[in-house]
Amino acid sequence: MAVGTSGRIIIDLDPNMKKKIYQKLKSEGLTMKQWFEIKAKSDFPDLFEKNKK
């Protein structure tokens, strides 16, 4: 998979799964971006720590 320099992440999903994910996120009051950021911070907290000098 190509990795570009923009801030975009592109994932191919089954259209039905995509619809279900968006419906679930909407019911929880989240956007896909918000959910992804929450998950990324939870799974990779070291990537989000402020630089300590």
Rank of each mutant, 00 (worst) to 15 (best):
N16Q: 11
S6I: 05
R8P: 02
V3K: 03
M32L: 15
K19C: 01
K26T: 08
N51R: 11
Q23A: 07
G29M: 09
S6G: 08
Q34N: 11
K33C: 14
Q23Y: 05
L30S: 01
F44Y: 10
K53H: 05
G7D: 08
L47Y: 11
F48Y: 15
K53Q: 06
L30C: 02
E49I: 07
R8H: 12
V3H: 02
D43T: 12
K52H: 03
D14F: 02
G7H: 08
K18V: 00
I9K: 00
K20R: 11
A2G: 06
G29N: 04
M32P: 04
R8T: 15
N16E: 13
N51F: 07
E28T: 07
E37R: 09
Y22Q: 15
L47P: 04
L47V: 12
F36N: 07
E49A: 05
S6V: 05
L13Q: 00
K33F: 15
R8F: 10
K41S: 09
S6H: 11
T5C: 05
S27I: 03
L13R: 00
M32A: 14
I11G: 01
T5L: 05
L25C: 13
K26F: 06
P45C: 03
E49K: 11
A2F: 10
I38K: 13
L30Q: 03
D14W: 04
G29L: 09
K39Q: 15
D14M: 02
F44S: 10
D43C: 06
P15G: 06
D46K: 12
G4K: 04
Q23G: 08
Y22N: 15
G4D: 00
T31W: 11
E37L: 13
D43E: 14
A40G: 08
I21W: 02
F44A: 10
L47D: 11
P15R: 07
K26S: 13
S42T: 15
K24M: 06
K18E: 05
I10T: 13
K26G: 07
T5W: 10
I21N: 00
Q23E: 15
V3Q: 00
L30F: 05
G29A: 07
V3A: 04
N16L: 12
L47N: 13
D43L: 14
F48E: 12
